[in-house]
Amino acid sequence: MADRRPTERPRAADRTRTNSGPGRLLIAVYLLFAIAATSRAGLQIATRFEAAPMAYLLSAFAAAVYIVAAVGLGRAGRTGRLIALACCTVELVGVVGVGAVSQARPELFPDETVWSGFGSGYGYIPLVLPVLGLFWLWRTRHDLDRAAASRPRPSRVAPDQSFGPPAT
């Protein structure tokens, strides 16, 4: 039945990989939101685009941001982290901005989007998610430096091949 052994404590070197541990949970939630927002936007645009084009295009944009954020967090290289940083920032600005506008001028958003009412339709998770994402990126900010430090530096001279068969 249950595995009685606690999981080994991760070593310091891989404790803060952007795309593992809590990061992987974050990616899972981003994937769920990517699926939810994409299918919702796809359906709205396919069936009743004329009703509220701006709201539906915004849904589609939010969906794209979630997908790209999930990919960025999953790649977790220098580019991936930059992409994730950009996406989380856009999300945070989007959810706060759209939330505020949908409260002040509801007529601009006749139909719900993921970001309407600060994400209230989705349990305010759209509001919390970018904050968690930014926090996680900040927590793992030394991730790449540490990985680079533990990797052997590339040698500028050609490898010595006087012993044994040449490396292929």
Partner: peptide, 25 residues
């Protein structure tokens, strides 16, 4: 698609966070 997603991600993450992913999904 949800349970298979949880399965795959939990297999990739054999730590407590794998269990957290299963719980979330």
């Amino acid at each position: 698609c949800l349970p298979p997603l949880a399965w795959v991600l939990a297999r990739m993450e054999p730590t407590r966070w794998g269990s957290a992913i299963v719980c979330t999904i």
